[in-house]
Design a protein around this nucleic acid. Structure first.
Lengths: 338, 338
DNA sequence: CTGAAAGCGCTTACAG
DNA sequence: CTGAAAGCGCTTACAG
């Protein structure tokens, strides 16, 4: 067991209050006193017990971040950014993953870790508005990502419809006409890809192109494997897309692999656009064009929001904040030969 | 603020002890009493304050995991596995990243989070034995990965020399003779790739091949970009490898990209083997042969070890535990035409 | 089987 | 400017 404040006070021959003042760098302590206490602190290798401090202050200095899947580089990269952003506010990050399952998301949301975390940043997949409305835990909660909720919580998400339209416009601008969408959900009730699918539809309409449902592939998951499977399914059904807009980069990468296995060349035969701008997309045999959300901003805004709720006026209206994004054009949509 | 034990006791008309017993599922409480207390718990939506509980018990239920970089899928995948393994012991995981910098690693190791974490799992890059010997924090520490230390701590790492030899043997078995190694360190003093480089050398010798230092490329980092840069540097110096063994998959992926840009075909012209078995390697245009460490086992062993130190006899000798690995052959080393 | 009380290690009014 | 004391919300011997 380490030394306590009391031990230090005893050794230094002062009260615990004084030691506390020194340890917390409070003013109004004479240099000589500070020096004397510091010597005792060093001698005993004293380190404050944060648990006790937190019990006293009602704060732990820990923010939880709950993401669906750490194996998805998007969330891994985002988690790294959140850890950095939190560090700037002296918060540390406790990591959860929900596997995108509603029960897990609800659990996290209901504060099963009540009192150990000060706030929560959650990127939900299946969570419903009702789950949020039934929430009783009062730790600040900030939502990330494209699911839309009718509940009084801050949410950080880029404008997914507009971003998807930008991606599709990039494709139509290349002269592509049969643009497939990969990553709709089989179960319509739980539709995270909703907004991106809508963007696809809207932009096709704007371009005077039909939106052909036989070019929409549904999946259960959002990994490389799902992308490859969806691509194969489409091709097996006889679809002949000249472009693919995938729900995310992982699926786009899987789709490119599937296209390659069938001898279809990217970008000559099929242009491909993903979403997320994960590092993987920048180093493949064919680099991937993608919609790049500003992850640093997302992380920073989320942390700032949690901290603001923790320290500020709780009556401030919850907001929907939209960080920026940009389209990064790479080889997978290099212009086809004229 | 939520309700406390005391509030519940008051409402139920019993002592806090009894409530505590019920909440903690202790035996010897009559069903009627349990029922009565439970009703009060529900009415007040009482949830125990873990901070207080932990202060009392001296444990927090939190294990820290410190990795160099979450953006590296290997560590992201490993982190996911650690979170899962810890959950089975009712521990949650607090995530740190060190950027592979010695100061950060030392900081983490010296218990700057003393008393908030029960134990630490660290994957060091630059940490030195001396840093470990100077450690004063008494929270259990388990080391991960290939750095070798002469300090009394548990370490979980596959046999890197043997694993590297397996990779190189796979290459020599294909008839390759000029096998480059990517990922040595420029600064020799801090040499994480040490063991894999030794494996490369030993296996070449065993195969009766020279180990040509002009085929060894040094880097500062271990990402895709570093792999591409190292590959380019080698090629620019006039090296003509017919195979590449990279320190990790990320570098191998970067190298493949660089080879492709120069018109060198994988596997026809150059065979490539990586290390880590990250998912990215399974879905490129050319899938990547790799050494696949058993990540589930690594995570499980690390957590078990921390928990054992926490609950068991602290006098047990620190061990070096070697989980399994296997070579996964994929397209990047498909046999060249005879 | 249950109650009253001490104590984990801090911080913070309250005196002096 | 510093000291003595209460209290954050639990758990756990100790009585009864």
């Amino acid at each position: 067991m380490g030394a306590s404040l009391k031990d230090v006070a005893q050794l230094a021959g002062v009260s615990v209050k004084t030691v506390s003042n020194v340890v917390n760098n409070r003013p109004h302590v004479t240099p000589a006193m500070r020096e004397r206490v510091q010597r005792a602190v060093d001698a005993l290798d004293y380190r404050p017990n944060l648990t006790a401090r937190h019990l006293r202050k009602g704060r732990t200095g820990i923010i939880a971040l709950a993401v669906p899947e750490l194996g998805n580089p998007y969330f891994a990269e985002l988690a790294g950014a959140v850890v950095d952003a939190a560090a700037r506010f002296d918060y540390t990050v406790l990591l959860d993953h929900t596997a995108g399952r509603r029960e897990q998301e609800v659990l996290v949301t209901q504060g099963f870790r009540a009192h150990v975390i000060d706030g929560l940043i959650l990127s939900p997949i299946e969570l419903e508005t009702a789950d949020l409305l039934g929430r009783r835990d009062d730790a600040p909660l900030v939502l990330l990502g494209e699911r839309e909720y009718d509940a009084p919580y801050d949410q950080i998400a880029i404008d997914n419809v507009a971003a998807a339209r930008t991606a599709v416009r990039h494709l139509t601008g290349l002269g592509r006409q049969r643009i497939a969408f990969l990553g709709a959900r089989r179960e319509l009730a739980r539709q995270p890809a909703h907004l991106r699918l809508r963007g696809w539809r809207e932009e096709l309409t704007a371009a005077g192109l039909p939106h052909d449902d036989s070019l929409v592939a549904a999946t259960d998951g959002y990994g490389r494997w799902d992308g490859a499977a969806a691509m194969n399914a489409l091709l097996n059904q006889g679809a002949q897309p000249d472009a693919v807009f995938a729900y995310n980069d992982l699926m786009a990468l899987g789709a490119m692999r599937a296209l390659g296995e069938r001898g279809l060349r990217v970008p000559q035969d099929v242009s491909v656009v993903g979403f997320d701008d994960i590092e993987d997309g920048r180093f493949g045999a064919v680099t991937l064009t993608t919609v790049s959300p500003d992850k640093q901003a997302i992380a920073r805004l989320a942390v700032e929001r949690v901290v603001a709720r923790l320290t500020g006026d709780p009556q401030v209206e919850p907001e929907r904040i939209q960080p920026g994004y940009r389209l990064v054009a790479r080889e997978s949509t290099a212009p086809p030969p004229a």
